[in-house]
């Protein structure tokens, strides 16, 4: 068990180090998030009260697209010099490799989100801090759902044509329930309403989504890595 955790952490540290040295994916993702936040201000009147009501939707669209850019690189980065084959033949289980990569992606996506969130608050004059911890919890849960399926599909699509296009096509429909829940909760939290009896079903759904897909991914990842 300890060995497994250490393997996960080694893979995670390796991925984070590789990303932080080049910063290619995280820079692209951040600037993309910025551009989309800017574009939304043309689509909706940023000073309008109604914009605040759809803020959850806007935020999660930004997060989902920016996250996809990061997730795309997760396995594609290993293609050069056949690193992927080396990783697969390394004496660690597929589950450890997958969880390590997923955690590294999680940290990166969360970092982008936590930079984009205050910017969003400034641009659209939204006081998003009133339910800070509950908002953080929602972001943490939904982002984990996004990264766990995203990392899995990143492994599925790494070898195929049109990799960059296929990942969002596969990932977004699967993510619709999680994104829907996150949007509902975020809109309520940003408006200052804490999670109550009328919307805690979304929270349970998010947790269920995360648990279910984490379990299925860990279970199936070995077949994917060997089959690829």
């Amino acid at each position: 068990m300890m060995a497994f955790v250490r393997q996960v952490l080694v893979i995670m540290a390796k991925d984070l180090r590789a990303e932080l040295r080049t910063k290619e994916a995280i820079n692209a993702s951040l600037s993309f998030a910025l551009v989309v936040l800017l574009l939304f201000s043309f689509a909706f009147d940023p000073s309008e009260e109604t914009t605040r009501e759809i803020s959850g939707g806007l935020l999660w669209i930004v997060f989902a697209f920016a996250g996809t850019l990061l997730l795309n690189r997760s396995f594609a980065r290993e293609l050069n010099n056949d690193c992927l084959d080396a990783l697969i033949s390394a004496p660690i289980s597929g589950a450890a490799l997958f969880l390590g990569k997923a955690l590294a992606n999680y940290v990166l996506v969360l970092a982008v989100e936590l930079i984009a969130l205050p910017l969003f608050g400034v641009f659209y004059n939204v006081r998003w801090t009133s339910q800070f911890w509950q908002l953080m919890m929602v972001i943490a849960l939904a982002t984990w759902g996004m990264t766990v399926t995203g990392t899995m599909f990143s492994a599925l699509t790494v070898n195929i044509r049109l990799r960059e296009v296929m990942l969002p096509i596969l990932n977004f429909p699967i993510l619709i329930p999680a994104l829907l829940g996150a949007m509902q909760l975020t809109s309520a939290l940003v408006a200052g309403k804490p999670i109550a009896a009328d919307n805690d079903a979304w929270l349970k759904m998010l947790i269920g989504f995360d648990v279910m897909y984490t379990a299925v991914s860990v279970f199936l990842v070995e077949t994917v890595l060997v089959g690829g």
């Binding site: 599925l156 429909p173 699967i174 829940g181 979304w202 759904m205 279910m212």
Partner: peptide, 27 residues
């Protein structure tokens, strides 16, 4: 590879069907 990856995706998709139906109902 095609068969394996497609099977994995099919399992993912089928798990999603009930979640989608219920969440959209709540929505």
């Amino acid at each position: 590879q095609r068969a394996t990856f497609a099977a994995v995706f099919s399992i993912f998709a089928f798990i999603d069907v009930p979640i989608v139906i219920f969440s959209i109902k709540w929505w």
